[in-house]
Design a protein around this nucleic acid. Structure first.
Lengths: 141, 141
DNA sequence: CTGTGTGCAAACTCTTTGCATAAGT
DNA sequence: ACTTATGCAAAGAGTTTGCACACAG
């Protein structure tokens, strides 16, 4: 339950504590990469490579664990556009995505711009958890 | 390039030939299951089990190959809602989906009912390939 | 100290691939 | 006959798990 563009390490530590997560070296390193700059879209693999180039070593298993813990804590959102890997998105506000098929890359679309009308009512006994709009883009030619 | 609710085996054979696919026993069996009844959502695994209960044996690799060939031919649409497996949908008209998280199940939403407004223009050099709306549903309580 | 967190390697799921055999035209 | 399709088993990608060791409070 925190702000998104937390820059100072102490703020990240506080967000982690709020989420019931001990601010370990690994979590601080990953949180630093994820929340320092603006909105980002990472995969476990891409974040793993990044953290091991900049901060110290973090194992891939820990990257997976941490991404899921951050997601459960509401600090990240998980997005699935391809059948294989998952993206994790640091923008937890209501928003949608362009997906550049050739580059396998996501681009945020601000949520307030898009309006959906004519949604049918969900089946009985269910409620809407999330509305995901993915606009797949192909490069011209 | 064909109709969806093809019932007769000869029609399926014709659709396959139109798509440049030889009407083999396996493709006819899978096509029969996919296109005989109304709109369906299958996974490779579910279709594999189904075909091996009803028609003769078809290997899982062939089910995968066939699903992709049918998709390339425009007879199916591939949908990704979870990071792991893919769904294949026999409804190739413009439409969207409810996703029942607890049951890992898709439900069609007719495309003409939903209207999206406020879509930003795609980045330069790209064009919209497809707009996918997935409404994730949770069961009450 | 005590309980969490981490790293490694192995396991697991879904999917793709290589190659010999079978089947369609 | 000639070509394409199939089946199997192996390999591949992405992810998860079990367990011993390390670290935070």
């Amino acid at each position: 339950m925190s702000h998104l563009s937390v820059t100072k390490e102490s703020d990240i530590a506080a967000s982690l504590r709020d989420a019931g997560l001990r601010p370990t070296r690994q979590r601080l390193a990953l949180g630093g990469l994820l929340f320092a700059k603006g909105n980002r879209h990472v995969t476990a693999e891409s974040l793993h490579q990044e953290v091991n180039k900049t901060s110290g070593h973090v194992s891939l298993a820990t990257v997976y664990n941490t991404l899921h813990q951050f997601t459960d804590a509401g600090l990240l959102r998980e997005i699935n556009v391809t059948g294989s890997k998952s993206f994790f998105c640091t923008n937890i506000a209501d928003h949608h995505h362009f997906y550049l098929e050739q580059d396998d890359e996501l681009i945020d679309i601000d949520g307030e711009n898009i309006r959906l009308s004519g949604l049918p009512t969900p089946p009985d006994g269910t409620r809407i958890d999330q509305v995901e709009v993915v606009i797949r883009l192909k490069k011209d030619q």
